[in-house]
Computed example of a mutant assay.
Amino acid sequence: MSVFVLVPGAGGSAWFWHRVVSELRTRGHEAVAVDLPGADESAGLPEYTDAVVAAIGDHRGVVLVAQSMGGFTAPMACARVPVGRLVLVNAMVPLPGETPGQWWGNTGSEPARLAAAEAGGYGTEFDLDTYFLHDVPAEVAAAGADHQQPEADIAFSQPCDIRAWPDVTTHVLAGAEDRFFPLEFQRRVAHERLGIKAEAIPGGHLAALSHPAPLAGRLIEYLS
Rank of each mutant, 00 (worst) to 15 (best):
E30C: 08
G101S: 07
Q186H: 05
Q102G: 11
M76V: 04
T170E: 04
A142V: 05
V63R: 13
F181D: 04
V34G: 15
D129A: 14
L209H: 10
D50S: 11
Y222W: 09
G70Q: 05
E30N: 11
E177Q: 14
A213N: 08
G123V: 11
L88K: 00
T99M: 05
G44V: 02
R179M: 02
P137Q: 12
A164S: 12
P202A: 14
I220P: 06
G57Q: 07
Y131C: 05
H59D: 12
E30V: 15
A190M: 02
P82M: 11
A143G: 10
T124N: 00
S42E: 14
L219Y: 07
G70W: 05
G120P: 09
V93H: 11
A117F: 05
D127G: 00
L88Y: 07
L206Y: 13
D146V: 08
A43L: 05
H211P: 00
E192I: 04
V65F: 07
D167T: 11
I196W: 04
V168Y: 04
H29T: 07
G217K: 07
S22P: 03
G57R: 06
D153E: 12
W104S: 15
H147V: 00
Q67N: 13
P150A: 13
W165P: 06
H211I: 04
Y48H: 15
R218I: 07
V172C: 03
P214D: 09
G11N: 14
A198R: 03
S109M: 10
L219W: 01
T99G: 00
V87N: 04
R85M: 12
G175P: 02
H29F: 05
N106K: 15
L64Q: 06
M76D: 11
F16A: 14
L45E: 02
A152F: 09
G57I: 01
K197N: 09
L24S: 09
Q158K: 10
A145W: 05
Q149R: 15
E125T: 13
V172E: 02
A115K: 04
A51E: 06
F185R: 06
F4T: 10
S210M: 00
D127Y: 00
R27N: 09
A91W: 00
